[in-house]
């Protein structure tokens, strides 16, 4: 990296918090970090979702399974992120898979709880009406219970995604932290513009992801807005 030798009096040289020159000279690094951040978040939350749905359905079906499952999710959620990543170190080594595995465990926890709450909130009358119309257990699950659990599941998905965006930064400890890498490097070199820019981008990504999922939720559950028309 060039240290701007002929222009010593710009905002980079003065180490200011807000620096337009930082954005223009390091746009490539920033873009790479944002892409890594998005990839880590998206992959983790998607794997978490794929695992959470069958677990929640199983816990709904077999009551004896729900107690231990919810207890386990509480334990997992209580373990601090830095410790979680560290515990996975012997299994995954210094890799992106370590960060993804840690984030999957957190997302899974939030998603299982919310999907299970959503499934439990389906009124018994609705279930019986569907059975009376000749619905088998699988058709009942797929076309009645799961759609009705979507609002609760989406609420969980939004919390899981926003949390994951924030937790990715801790992945900097193994070198796979997306924007967290820039914050970590900026801390060691006292590079104010880099730390502030990366931090703000993290929050922007979290808010954008939340709004995106809110839009998806509106599309998936048109009946919730139907009362208006």
């Amino acid at each position: 990296m060039k240290a701007a030798p002929e222009a010593p009096d710009d905002c980079l040289a003065r180490n200011e918090w807000i620096c337009g020159k930082y954005l223009s000279t390091r746009s490539e690094i920033l873009t790479d970090a944002v892409i890594q951040h998005l990839e880590l978040t998206a992959i983790s939350v998607l794997i978490g979702l794929v695992l959470a749905v069958p677990l929640a359905v199983a816990a709904r079906r077999w009551h004896w399974a729900s107690g231990p499952l919810l207890g386990l999710t509480t334990v997992l959620y209580t373990i601090p992120s830095l410790a979680m990543f560290s515990l996975l170190l012997p299994v995954y080594g210094l890799s992106a898979a370590l960060v993804v595995a840690g984030l999957v465990l957190y997302s899974l926890t939030l998603l299982v709880r919310n999907i299970l709450a959503g499934l439990r909130a389906v009124p018994e009358e609705t279930r019986q009406a569907a059975r009376g119309m000749g619905y088998g257990p699988i058709r009942l699950l797929l076309t009645v219970e799961l759609p009705l659990a979507v609002p609760a599941a989406m609420a969980g998905l939004r919390i899981a995604t926003v949390s994951a965006v924030s937790l990715v930064t801790v992945g900097a400890i193994v070198g796979y932290g997306g924007l967290g890498n820039l914050i970590y490097a900026g801390m060691n070199t006292y590079f104010k513009a880099q730390v502030l820019t990366a931090s703000v981008l993290c929050v922007v990504i979290a808010i954008a992801a939340d709004l995106l999922l809110l839009g998806v939720q509106r599309l998936l559950t048109p009946w919730q807005k139907g009362a208006r028309g």
Partner: peptide, 18 residues
Amino acid sequence: SNVGRAVPTFAVLVLLLL
């Protein structure tokens, strides 16, 4: 609470450190 969740702890710690 929602705002608190969106702000990375690590980022705030480093910002305060500087």
